[in-house]
Simulated assay, not measured.
Amino acid sequence: MSLVRLRMDLAYDGGGFHGWARQPGLRTVQGCIEHALSVITGVHRSKDGIAHRRVVWEPRLVVAGRTDTGVHASHQVAHLDIPAAVLQACRGHMGVDGVLALERRLRHLLPADIVLLGLSMAPTGFDARFSALERTYLYRVSQGGQPGDPRMRGYVLDLEGSLDLQAMNEAVAVCIGLHDFGSFARPNPGGTTIRKVLAAHWDLVPNVNLFETAPGQSAVGYLPPFMESGLTVFRIVADAFAHNMVRSLVAACIQVGQGRRSVQWFADKVAHPLREGSTGPIDARGLTLEHVAYPPDDQLAERAQAIRARRTL
């Protein structure tokens, strides 16, 4: 059976899903997409109009990062290996190639909280998970006791009181580089919690208008602000993330920002990777996977091979 690999770019609202990974009896992102693929590629109608399933291939997606229950993605990446004949059969009566036909059919079948951003032939050596260079997550917080915007209630954590961003940034600066994040991640039997963090910082989003007036012109009417104006946002970039790692780092940072823990306590957690109750994950609603970066096409296979190796400090 000749297989071709497709790259799938996605976005989804994680509020209605039990995470990315397929789980029996639960609604997951992977489960919904694979079900749609099965319907498209594995069902035909006989002359009497009755639908029959002909199992020739079971779709299985490989994803760049398995998001947890309630976590969102504005740009997730996955790959799919599909028989060439099955892909071409997706064309039906459409006068387009198989990839575009499958893309159109998927967009028609996927639920409203999953958006297919694009479907394309993957370059040689591409692996959505192992070829990735880095992943960027954002965690959005509304602090200071200000009433939150109800339109953002599923994507922002509301906190009473103010946060000490200077202390939080002093703490999270310790994360930069290669560390064992065992204090901030669920144990991984047979695997590792060693990760390389490239950037991590807390910032207060300034109040910026959605529209700007041209130079020399006076504003006419009300200029609405961006919906994220005034929010406190944590941005972290790493080559990969361990399970619950970002949400646990956020929870620990907020403890520091609220004065309940010290910067030294945070540093000790990084230096001595031991999972315990004070570094559990925070509410998932504020977390979004924003971006996955890949190397040039001629370096994809090399990157995938290197990242599969078990890392050490």
Rank of each mutant, 00 (worst) to 15 (best):
R235S: 14
R235C: 08
R235D: 04
I236P: 01
I236N: 01
I236L: 07
V237Q: 03
V237I: 12
V237A: 02
A238S: 14
A238E: 07
D239N: 13
D239Y: 01
A240V: 06
A240T: 09
A240H: 02
F241Q: 06
F241H: 08
A242R: 05
A242D: 06
A242Y: 04
H243T: 14
N244H: 15
N244T: 06
M245Q: 14
M245P: 00
M245A: 06
V246E: 00
V246C: 04
R247D: 03
R247E: 06
S248A: 15
S248D: 01
L249W: 04
L249Q: 03
L249Y: 10
V250L: 12
V250A: 04
A251Q: 12
A252T: 08
A252H: 09
C253S: 15
C253F: 04
C253M: 12
C253W: 02
C253R: 03
C253Q: 00
C253D: 04
C253I: 01
I254C: 04
Q255T: 11
V256S: 13
V256P: 06
V256Y: 11
V256C: 08
G257P: 12
G257L: 04
Q258P: 07
Q258S: 08
Q258I: 04
Q258A: 11
Q258M: 14
G259T: 10
G259C: 10
R260I: 03
R260E: 13
R261W: 12
R261S: 10
R261D: 05
S262D: 14
S262R: 11
V263A: 11
V263K: 12
V263Y: 13
V263C: 14
W265K: 05
W265P: 08
F266H: 10
F266V: 00
F266D: 07
A267R: 15
A267E: 11
A267K: 15
A267Q: 09
A267P: 01
D268V: 08
K269N: 09
K269E: 03
K269Q: 13
V270H: 12
V270N: 03
V270G: 07
V270Y: 09
A271F: 06
A271S: 15
H272G: 05
H272V: 09
L274K: 11
L274M: 07
R275K: 15
E276A: 01
G277R: 14
G277S: 15
S278Q: 12
S278V: 12
S278D: 15
T279F: 05
T279R: 10
